[in-house]
Structures are given as structure tokens and as C-alpha cells.
Computed example of a mutant assay.
Amino acid sequence: MIPVHSTTLPVAAPPRAEPDEQPLCAPTFTIVTSCKDDAQTIEDCLTSVASQTFGSFEHVVIDRHSRDDSMERIYARRDRLSIVYGNAADSHFQAWNRGIGHASGDVIGFLDARDALADPDVLMRVANAFEDPTVSAVYGDILCVDQRDVCQVRRRCHLGPISPTRRARGWVPPTQALFVRKAWYRGIDGFAPHMRFAADYAASLRLFSQPSFKAVYIGEPVIRQRSAPLALGRMLDLLKAPRDEVQALREARLGGWHAWVRHRVYKLEGWVGA
């Protein structure tokens, strides 16, 4: 059995807000998590969602035939989850598409099995921003945390508000920090299956290219993101990702390789200055 390095999130799970304490015109949320052999971290992920003070949400977990004891840990919480059994050959993004298909909430957020929501009030803050019916998406900052302990924050990535200039450089908020109304994801048919390494980036470029798509930056952390170990498979994926990212930029009419280089330089400057 794989040793489990599970940690306790910094804030104890408070009771969920009563309906009259929640924002007026509050949306319902679906949090989608794709899992494959994530027994070491899945409990932190599940706890962070279950402890939200905002009451109107569901958590859809797609297991892609895990070979460790991830399913045991997920099944132990089946009373709080919707469990979807994916295919072993499914990519991360195909699993997310399954999540969109099963979502009953008005707003969808994607949370990796390695990560956790930043604190118990994340969904409440996001719901407040969605009180404006013209808002299509809400996003916030990322807390980069230790691989073994989500309480240990290494740095905070301040994403900042999007602007026409930033988008022209190919910048969009990372999907994991983004909450989008379900109708928008369904309107673009989710994540393109032919883009195995950058389907999330391509989807966000398509969303943010829509004239009526309005995103709000709340300026608060929404996710605790573990740094991923540089295993051989991940290194190979990182080498293959630029091809898909260039294709996404071309489809968004933002250019090709030259645009990709500008985007990478701009992204690096943002991370260094965060």
C-alpha cells in the first residue's frame, strides 16, 4: 500500500451557511475532480470541498481506474460525493468532460486530486461575485504549497485582472483557479479531445475570446496547488505541450510560435513578479 501523506487544512471545517446567510441569487456549484492513483493526496482534496461554508454545491469525482487505494478513500465518503467511473485510457481532460456531463450545478470548478481549495470560504466568496447575473466566470489567486503538506505555503501567485493587452499576449487564468458558468463550457463543447496536453488552455482562450464573456478577479486565494514532481512522464508531457499551446493560440487568432514565445516570456515574468 502506498504511504499516505495527508495533512489537516489550516481551518477546521465549520458548519455550512444556512440558506438565508448565503448571497442573494447565489449559484449552485459543481466541483469536478479527476483522480488516478492519487491516494497520497485525495483526502486533502475531498476535505477541502466538504468543509466549504457555502452549502449549495456538489462534488463529482471521476476515477480513471486507480491502481492504488484511491477508490477506498473516495468510497468512504460516498455520502458526500457523486462518483463517476471513467475509462483507464481517459485523459485528464476527457475525465473533466465527463464531469461537465454529470454536473447539475450552475457553475463548474475543476480541482485536481493533488490540490485543495484554499480555505472553507472559497465558494462563498466566489458566489458573492456571481450575484451579478452578467458575470460569466470568477477567478482568484493560487497558493503554491509543499508537496507533502498543503499548510506550508511556498509562494502566492497573484493572477491579477485580465485585460485586452494580457489576452493579446495569450494570457488567461489557469483553469484550476477559474469558476465558469456551466452553459459556457457546454457552449464550447468542453475540452477538445485532440489537444491532449493543453486542452484547458485552449478552452480558456475560446471562452475569453467571446465578446460577452465577463470574468471577475476577486483578488483572494482560491486554490492550494501542490508542486508536481518532475517524473519522466511529466517531463515528456511538458516537452509535448508547446505544440498544443501553439495550436490553441492559432485557433484563437493570436498567432503561432512567435506568439507562444511572447506568451511564455510574459508568463515567466508574471510568476517571477508574483
Rank of each mutant, 00 (worst) to 15 (best):
A198K: 03
R234M: 08
D38H: 13
P229C: 08
E21W: 06
S91C: 05
R253Q: 13
W271T: 07
S6P: 00
S227A: 14
S204W: 02
P173T: 08
A177D: 00
E251K: 07
A89N: 12
E220W: 05
P120T: 10
C144L: 14
R155P: 00
V172M: 01
C35Q: 11
V265A: 11
K182V: 12
I83T: 04
S136H: 02
W257R: 11
L236R: 10
F57Q: 09
K182P: 04
I188E: 06
S91G: 13
P164Y: 06
R167D: 00
D68T: 04
T33F: 08
R243Y: 07
A118G: 02
S104F: 00
D132G: 01
I62A: 12
D119K: 00
L207R: 03
P242F: 03
D63K: 10
I188A: 07
G233Y: 01
Q22R: 10
N87H: 11
M235W: 07
G86L: 04
Q225V: 05
G270A: 12
T7S: 15
G256R: 15
Y185S: 10
A203R: 04
A252F: 05
A129W: 03
F213P: 05
T7E: 04
A13M: 03
V49P: 00
I223F: 02
A183C: 14
Y185W: 15
F197L: 11
M71P: 00
T7H: 13
T7D: 13
D63I: 12
S212K: 13
G219P: 08
R169S: 12
G99F: 10
I62Q: 09
E43T: 11
H59F: 06
A95N: 04
S82F: 02
I162F: 11
V32P: 12
T33H: 10
G86R: 00
A103H: 10
A12E: 14
Q210H: 15
D149F: 09
P27D: 03
V246D: 01
V180H: 01
Y266E: 14
P174M: 06
I42L: 02
G160L: 11
P15F: 04
I31G: 01
V138P: 09
A127E: 01
D237T: 09
W271E: 11
G101H: 10
H59N: 07
L143M: 12
G105M: 09
D106G: 07
P15A: 13
G255L: 08
P14G: 07
Q94P: 00
S209C: 11
M124D: 15
G109M: 04
L111A: 09
A199V: 06
F208G: 01
V246H: 00
L239H: 03
Q147A: 14
G233H: 08
D141S: 09
T28S: 15
Y201N: 07
Q176R: 10
G256F: 12
K182H: 14
R253H: 14
M71G: 00
Y217I: 02
T165M: 04
H194F: 15
L238K: 08
R196L: 15
R264A: 12
A228W: 14
